[in-house]
Simulated assay, not measured.
Amino acid sequence: MPRFLIALILGLLFGTQAFASEPTLRDYHSRANHPDAWQGGVRMIPIHTPAGDFKVWTKRVGNNPRIKVLLLHGGPGATHEPFEVFDSFLPADGVEYYYYDQLGSYYSDQPDDPKLLDVDRFVDEVEQVRVALGLDKDNFYLLGHSWGGILAIEYALKHQDHLKGLVISNMVSSIPAYNKYANDVLMPQLAPEALAELRKLDAAKDYANPRFEELLVPHYEAHVLRRPMAEWPEPVMRGFVRHLNKKVYVPMQGPSELGASGLLVDWDRTDALKDIKVPTLVIGARYDTMDPKYMEMMSKRLPQGQYLYLPNGSHCAFYDDQDAYFAGLLKFLHAVDDAKAGG
């Protein structure tokens, strides 16, 4: 069979050519040269911190020497588990990717030390993970969702020389801007009596009261994941509910998704976006907890920024505007790879 026909067939199978040479299914699932293969791609990576040495959990899926995506989950203190939906899209397109639970999250060590709740320390942790996994500018894409988007921005500002591409998923570059959007746009969408009761509970710091979460259910179903909570995907319930480490989440984010009030409250890197030179995709959604217009503005401030707008999505758009989310993400990954290969 002619070489170009083989390439065409493989291109149909993998979406596009993702390897330096023509890929095969065996290539993608190869165990060669991967020290994690004997345990299904899982590694516990040693991490040095000011509070001592610990280990974080990672899991590799697939094998692609040119496109390797490290996933930074939300929270802080949530897990990689909501990303498990990536299994339905990335392998078929030949993309290699890494699940990763940050320190303090469920599958990694969970030291109880406030000194570790620091953005710069988390950035240093990501860099240690990158080194251990052998990722670099020829193949390393970083995707951060929500809090992971904060971490991805900070990582790029410090270590972009190691990046091939960056994805900021459903996160604005300013917590004050997020809080303004929550106060001016999101809160008024709640029923007036519910908002009044929420403000009363908030003033009393009565966050353990079951009513606090009950009153927020309409907000969650409209702006976090647009399905009734009884139908939320099982990986989301594990990652954001059952396995959430509140000793990390509450001090950094605050007790509620209706705005931030923790250690991150003054975080703002909008003016620094111009310094991120690598190709960057910003993903926003119509019903997101984050202002989609603000995310569009971010993409224009980034020297190589692009914007993916999801008209049916919310904060977890990889579930509620799924096909558009992954079509846009995969298009970006391959376009950057093609440009680098051609350059």
Rank of each mutant, 00 (worst) to 15 (best):
N245Y: 05
F212N: 01
P210D: 02
V236A: 09
L198Q: 11
V185I: 12
K180D: 13
G254P: 12
W267L: 09
R242N: 15
A194K: 06
G259N: 11
L216K: 00
R199M: 07
S256L: 00
Y249F: 02
A156Q: 06
P255L: 02
K205Y: 02
D161T: 04
H162F: 10
L258P: 13
A191L: 07
G148C: 09
P218Y: 04
Y181T: 02
S174V: 09
M229G: 07
R242V: 12
M171H: 13
L264S: 09
E197N: 05
V265K: 13
R227I: 15
E214K: 14
K247V: 07
Y155V: 07
A182N: 14
V167K: 10
R238K: 10
K205T: 03
V250H: 08
E221D: 06
E154C: 00
I175K: 11
D266H: 04
A194V: 12
H162G: 13
S261I: 07
K246T: 14
H223V: 00
L201Q: 02
P251V: 06
W232M: 03
S174C: 05
N179G: 03
N245F: 08
Y181Q: 04
L166T: 09
Y155P: 12
S261A: 02
D266C: 06
V167G: 06
A156N: 01
I153S: 00
A182G: 14
P228W: 11
Y181F: 14
A204I: 03
R238Y: 10
A191R: 14
L195N: 00
V241S: 10
L195T: 08
D202E: 14
V250F: 11
M171D: 14
D202T: 13
E213Y: 09
R238A: 08
H162A: 12
L151C: 08
P228S: 00
E154K: 05
M237W: 01
G148Q: 01
K158M: 01
Q189W: 11
L225P: 14
Y181E: 08
A230E: 15
M171R: 13
D206N: 13
Y220P: 12
V236M: 05
G262F: 04
Q253W: 12
S256M: 05
V248D: 03
D206A: 05
A222T: 08
Y181C: 13
I168W: 06
V224G: 03
P218A: 11
P251E: 11
R226V: 07
L198S: 06
P233K: 07
A196D: 02
P235V: 02
S173N: 04
A196E: 10
P210V: 03
D206P: 15
S174P: 14
N245R: 03
H219L: 15
E213P: 13
P192G: 02
K200D: 14
M171A: 08
P176T: 10
N183C: 00
L263F: 01
L195Q: 04
D202K: 09
M237R: 14
N209L: 05
L244E: 06
V185K: 15
W147L: 06
D268E: 01
R226S: 01
S173G: 14
H162N: 14
V248Q: 08
A196C: 09
K158S: 04
E221Q: 11
N179T: 03
R226L: 12
G239N: 12
D161E: 15
L157V: 08
L258H: 00
E154M: 10
L166A: 10
V172M: 15
